[in-house]
Design a protein around this nucleic acid. Structure first.
Lengths: 250, 250
DNA sequence: CGATGAGTTGACGTTTGTCAAGGCCGGTGG
DNA sequence: CCACCGGCCTTGACAAACGTCAACTCATCG
């Protein structure tokens, strides 16, 4: 699937002024000239492989990226989705190599900034430093919630949480409506994100549909029908999650 | 268990000059006067609860802390262990509340720094900024490896990895020998860290012992007998893991 | 010496993964 | 236009991994 249509829906939308950090790109903020140096990548393209030498920082302008790690046998875990407005420094502690594979989930527009340049930008722009701090806190909070659910949560809980998390992140970008949105993901990808097999993702989502919690069309366009129940299954209060993971523009 | 003896073993050891960031505390670095303002906490003490308002940064000088999250039913996941030399900013994206519970695993010595003071320290000390960057990269790398194993790894793999990860972190602090070390953890806590029940942690560790991969005494003093096999079970090359997660002093 | 808490082990149930088969849909080439 | 193909979703049957419950041991501590 991954139709260009869906991607476009998820990618564009600057100018909503809805509060997403992406707005900074177009408002004369420290990243305002990012689009000029940006590079277009197509869905499926691998930007960096786990273990590669690489000392650059990635800023996503349009589209979805994903970081992942995998075992030799091919089992793969998606570490995080990197959405428009997100900034990724994939370096490990050695400062030379990266610890994740970075791949474009949809067609995307990214800016690739050498580490030295990035350092300079940071030290000359307190605004940018604040942005990075907020993004980092948001990432930490999201990762903690996800670790909890990967370690101790059931399949319905993991799926429900992923839906809520992604819907909140998309909404913060000013896309989609409150309850309906498009995920440019296969069920396999959703399983790689939640630590489940694609078969079990399917079963679990069908059950959520049968119970009237969500509705789906085209298999992966999701509409939240019963937000209250969904957040109970996910084990989180939606407002609280929003505070935790939505970077309030500084 | 958690004997004071064991705690002491894990806590002290400054002055080895082995390269751990903890050395900076005693070498006139930007944190050299940290001990003066430090606060002593006892094992089991909860410093902050998930959801609390709190805008301070924690620097660990001696002892182990742990960040965790839990569900209403009491199921708990340890997000990370915070060891001497580590710096923790538990804030979420809203900048006001924290997203994890922070608890002392052993008796510990910590410095609690108001966010505003911390910001000033950062902006006036490039050295400190570099340290934080390296620590952050190390944390990211460790978390990614752990997400992979929580999502797609078997119980033996999670346990083997936890043993390797913690042994490397301890070794970087200059404690313990290459292969033998003490973990101030119950099997329940190891389970909360690896996403397993305490019963299954026990079974899995006994199997590792029977197969001659590790040896244990006092149930939780661990000696690695067959490092090669252990790292194969964990699904990682030890040298690579060390590069990823050991912050090379800047 | 009883009480408590942690580790150990076995029996059993539940959740989830694996395998296999079928349906749907879009693309491709005759 | 149509036949074919490959991906993806869906569903059922079965197997494996892991959690739960319960009983026992052992060490520690009052």
């Amino acid at each position: 699937m991954q139709s260009t249509c869906g991607s476009a829906k998820a990618q564009t939308g600057g100018g909503h002024g809805q509060g997403g950090l992406i707005a900074v790109y177009d408002d004369g903020g420290p990243l305002h000239n990012l689009r000029r140096n940006a590079r277009r990548v197509r869905a499926g393209h691998v930007l960096v492989q786990d273990g590669d030498e690489f000392d650059k920082v990635i800023v996503v302008i349009e589209g979805w990226l994903a970081t992942s790690k995998s075992f030799e046998d091919g089992e793969q875990q998606i570490i995080d989705f990197i959405l428009p407005g997100d900034i990724l420094d994939p370096a490990t502690a050695d400062g030379l190599t990266v610890g994740v594979t970075l791949e474009a989930v949809t067609d995307a527009l990214v800016s690739i900034i050498p580490a030295s340049v990035w350092q300079t930008m940071l030290k000359t722009s307190p605004t940018l430093e604040d942005m990075v701090g907020h993004l980092w806190a948001a990432t930490q909070a999201r990762t903690s919630e996800r670790l909890l659910r990967l370690g101790k949560g059931t399949a319905p809980m993991r799926i429900a949480f992923a839906i809520l998390e992604l819907s909140l992140r998309l909404r913060a970008l000013g896309h989609d409506t409150d309850t309906a949105f498009h995920l440019p993901l296969t069920q396999k990808a959703l399983g790689d994100y939640t630590g489940l097999s694609s078969v079990h993702v399917c079963r679990t989502m069908r059950r959520l549909v049968r119970h009237g919690v969500i509705e789906t069309s085209d298999h992966i366009d999701i509409r939240i029908v019963d937000l209250q129940t969904l957040s109970e299954i996910a084990g989180i209060d939606v407002k609280r999650l929003q505070q935790e993971i939505t970077p309030t523009a500084a």
